[in-house]
């Protein structure tokens, strides 16, 4: 193949740039059309390829971190040991008391004929990658479709709800955090089935702060109250803890109050998470026939 002269290269370059820009723009426009999922062929392949790099790096990185943290924790081990011994004695007394309470609770439940709460199955996973861009906050976990992970499955930690699965490859899955602006979810302030303070929680534009809107102005919301999912969004089950109210601001007539929530899960420092193997119940037939319903 004959080599191109410099003049020819200068002539081709702007046209090539335009072509590549158009391709990228088309890709972007296609990706922006669907906001509720990020499942794309390129993503699935890239995530599968990246798993072979991310998993070993995360393994080595966490091994080194654990080694150094174990050395530093040795210093405080003796004093901690004394405190823990005392705590064990206290807990033994508490356990004995709780056993009695459990028996009593079971008896009362059977009396009231309450159904036992459905326990969802969990799948533990490790965060092996974080978002490659400084502008976003998604994470990659080491469980994929081969493990039974599906789109929109909730991700939780012992602190509370973290987010949902937005893209699945055979070995990994991408998790969008609840702080992402578009991720609106139904929530309730206070105890579920008791409180009427239902609203929509979404990202606030600040890291690790959520905003709740559409709560009626007649309902008083106090700082420190807990916020839970109410299950009305068709993605998350009801009763998952989101966080606590840290600020309530009076707003416009259409939206009387804006509630700011501190998530109870540590979103920026999570290493171990659990995939809730929950699939929302199918939408009722009348919802599918509505004129604005999404057609497949």
């Amino acid at each position: 193949m004959a080599e191109r002269s410099q003049k020819e290269v200068w002539k081709i370059t702007p046209w090539l740039m335009l072509l590549l820009l158009l391709c990228n723009f088309a890709l972007m426009a296609f990706d922006a059309r669907q906001t509720n999922t990020q499942q794309r062929v390129i993503r699935v392949w890239a995530q599968t390829a990246a798993d072979f790099v991310q998993s070993p790096v995360t393994f080595v990185g966490s091994a080194i971190t654990n080694y150094f943290s174990s050395i530093s924790s040795m210093r405080t081990a003796q004093s901690e040991n004394d405190v823990l011994k005392q705590r064990v004695q206290e807990l033994e007394i508490e356990v004995q008391t709780n056993k009695g309470l459990t028996v009593e609770n079971e008896r009362l439940k059977s009396l009231l004929e309450l159904k036992a709460n459905t326990n969802y199955k969990f799948l533990s996973a490790q965060v092996i990658g974080r978002d490659t861009s400084a502008w976003f906050d998604t994470s990659i976990i080491d469980r994929g479709s081969l493990d039974g992970v599906k789109l929109n499955m909730p991700i939780v930690t012992n602190g509370g709800l973290v987010g949902r699965v937005t893209a699945v490859s055979p070995l990994t899955a991408q998790v969008a955090l609840i702080t992402k602006d578009k991720a609106g979810l139904g929530a309730v302030v206070g105890t579920l089935e008791v409180s009427n303070a239902n609203g929509v929680v979404s990202g606030s534009g600040q890291k690790e702060i959520l905003e709740m809107g559409y709560v009626p102005g007649s309902i008083e919301v106090k700082i420190g109250e807990s916020v839970y999912t109410n299950g009305q969004d068709g993605i998350y089950p009801a009763g998952l803890k989101l966080g606590e109210v840290i600020e309530v601001r009076a707003d416009s007539a259409t939206q009387p109050q804006r509630i700011f929530i501190q998530p109870s899960a540590k979103l920026s420092a999570m290493q171990e998470v659990a995939v809730l193997l929950y699939e929302p119940p199918p939408r009722p037939e009348f919802e599918k026939t509505l004129p604005n319903a999404k057609k497949k």
Partner: peptide, 8 residues
């Protein structure tokens, strides 16, 4: 591909 942003 590994980001939460738009592809492209």
């Amino acid at each position: 591909a590994l980001s939460g942003g738009l592809l492209g």
